[in-house]
Nucleic acid binder design. Structure first.
Length: 562
RNA sequence: CGGGGCGUAGCGUAGUCCGGUUAGCGCGCCUGCUUUGGGAGCAGGAGGUCGCAGGUUCGAAUCCUGCCGCCCCGACCA
């Protein structure tokens, strides 16, 4: 492709609205342009890369027996009402104003609709159906460029099986296919076991990429690949001491001491000798949660453990319930349910609030003084804590979800009537699985992992072009002729070549554009070298430059672009 | 939906607090000449509903009211 005739609007300056590297670089390289919040147009260069990603996905899906569909984005609302998901999705679902249609945010319903009455016998199963289609979700806050959009491209597949064992196989096939896809795309990713949330169903795994732009926080162990969302992650930590002798309870005057840090400072003690109190309102009743030192209450874990409605108490409520303000609350004299984090189990000689402002108590023995206490895992793991599976250390960081595989079960087949007859002629709902990949996220994550201060660094697999041919001065007849000749020759040899044949762009301008666009190999045609029958070849990733004879070029390219 | 920031030419911005000529600058764009190994030089030129609507005023980018849009943090989220 000749740059002089192409629409590749690169930007020298950083657009004000872009913050994360992938967003900035996708705008600067002219891959995408925003139309509205969370709505992007893909320009030719960006679309070329997106196509390479979907081609890889398609190949790997076909390899496990997937059959590609093309489904409508516009869906009758009726079908969505059948599964209760008009309500389920709520404001996330886009509604069409002048018809009873919705814009599909995913396609379980439509796939099940097609399966109904056609997958009639166990002999028709299993099936793997997939599509690569635009989804619509009215995200309250689109962000990070293409990573969270209101309209986005997703590969979604759905499996229909007769038995749970067969579902396991379909799930396993997807698991393997996803690993191949992300490996081929050159991404560093990891896999997290997750709860399946609003999708309904049993087991699920998320394929994640570490990134500050991520929306999930995960704990990961480098040595054994343990990975879990912090909402469920556990770690190996030391529990608090239980001394041989329990002291008696005693009151301490602690003026203006509110936080655990202040208490530790005031009493010259370690935070593990303290029990922090947090008051929640659970189904209308007060609930005291005790944590060791500065450990934070993980509200997701709390919710899972006790169920129902939970919220932190308001300041006035705390005063009414305990007679004290936050910072002076404690378990002694608290007349409602008390639960504590496992770390505090059976601790004694602890310090805690006295339910009286400016007073704390010492000598607290949870076993003796709070007999009705219940222990649960309630804390969030932190970086540096021990991996629960091996002797490694956990790292806690933000991550982007690239793909998600679910064992759905029979929710949709039952709601939409996808039943088959088994060998005995008995009717059963088909057992479904659902598997998604965010295609633009693959692109954005690749860039997040492969850039430098000059621009993007493409590997050959996803690169829009493998060779960036730079003719330094197109007004020189020698250069113009030779570079055009090379362009034809390399194109015929099967290389995808981006030819910077712009007549008025200066050398430096072309170099910087080439580094920004980031094709794996640059071939630089300059007058000096050319007069000696030589060209320069540059490896974008390493920055290595070689001046080589023209007749060595093909060999060198083979070496660099294998 | 809560908090914060922003909206001036294609992009990046100054001016806004404290109202007063023709709204300034850099990049980009157009024309001509020169230049071509790391974002060229000179000369000339085009391009603006100052987000929108209303108000105050002799006079509004600037002050007031309402609305819209965009970014960030939080809440929410396959």
């Amino acid at each position: 492709m000749k740059l002089s005739k192409s629409f590749v609007p690169t930007l020298k300056e950083v657009p004000a609205d872009a913050v994360i590297p992938s967003h900035i670089l996708m705008l600067r390289t002219g891959m995408v342009r925003m139309v509205s919040a969370g709505i992007y147009s893909f320009l030719p260069l960006g679309y070329k890369v997106l196509r390479k990603i979907t081609d890889i996905i398609r190949e790997e899906m076909n390899a496990i027996g997937g059959q590609e569909f093309h489904l409508p984005g516009l869906n009758p609302k009726e079908i969505w009402e059948a599964t209760g998901r008009v309500e389920g999705f709520g404001d996330i679902l886009f509604h069409v104003k002048n018809r009873e249609y919705v814009l599909a945010p995913t396609h379980e319903e439509i796939m099940a609709f097609h399966a109904k009455g056609t997958l009639k016998s166990y002999k028709d199963l299993p099936q793997i159906w997939y599509q690569i289609q635009t989804k619509f979700r009215n995200e309250p806050r689109p962000r990070s460029g293409v990573i969270r959009g209101r309209q986005f491209l997703m590969k979604d597949s759905y499996t229909f099986d007769a038995t749970w064992e067969d579902l396991d196989k379909a799930y396993e096939l997807h698991d393997q296919a996803y690993r191949k896809i992300f490996d081929r795309c050159g991404l560093k990713y990891f896999v997290v076991g997750a709860s399946s949330g609003a999708m309904g169903g049993n087991k699920s795994e998320e394929f994640m990429v570490k990134s500050d732009a991520g929306e999930d926080t995960v704990a990961y162990c480098e040595s054994c690949s343990y990975a879990a969302n912090v909402e469920v992650a556990t770690s190996k930590i030391e529990t608090v001491n239980r001394d041989d002798n329990s002291k008696e309870l005693y009151e301490i005057h602690t003026p203006d001491v509110k936080s655990i840090d202040e208490l530790c400072e005031f009493l010259k003690i370690n935070q593990r000798e303290t029990a922090k109190s947090r008051v929640y309102i659970h189904n209308g009743e007060p609930l005291l949660v005790l944590m060791s030192g500065n450990d934070e209450v993980n509200e997701t874990k709390l919710n899972t453990v006790i169920g129902g409605d939970v919220r932190p108490g308001h300041p006035e409520e705390l005063q009414n319930i305990t007679g004290a303000d936050a910072g002076s609350i404690g378990p002694i004299g608290f007349k409602h349910r008390i639960i504590a984090d496992n770390r505090l189990r059976n601790g004694n000689n602890l310090y805690s609030g006295a339910n009286k402002n400016d007073y704390h108590i010492g000598g607290l023995d949870l076993k003796r003084d709070v007999p009705a206490i219940e222990y649960f895992d309630l804390r969030s793991v932190e970086s540096g804590e021990g991996c629960p599976r091996c002797n490694g250390k956990l790292e806690v960081f933000k991550a982007i979800e690239l793909g998600h595989i679910f064992k759905l079960g029979t929710k949709y087949s039952e709601a939409l009537g996808v039943y088959y007859l088994d060998e005995k002629g008995e009717s059963h709902p088909a057992i479904m699985g659902s598997y998604g990949i965010g295609c633009e996220r693959v692109l954005a994550c690749y860039i997040e992992q492969n850039y430098d201060d000059k621009g993007i660094i493409w590997d050959t697999t996803l690169a829009p072009f493998s060779i960036h041919l730079i003719a330094l001065n197109m007004k020189s007849e020698l250069i113009a002729n030779k570079s055009n000749e090379l362009y034809d020759e390399l194109s015929k040899a099967g290389y995808e070549v981006l030819f910077d044949d712009r007549i008025d762009a200066s050398a430096g301008f072309k170099f910087n554009d080439a580094d920004l666009l980031g094709m794996p190999v640059q071939i630089i045609i300059g007058e000096r070298n050319l007069k000696e029958g030589k060209v320069e070849i540059k490896n974008r990733r390493t920055g290595d430059k070689d001046t080589i004879a023209l007749d060595e070029l093909k060999l060198k390219l083979k070496e660099l672009l294998q």
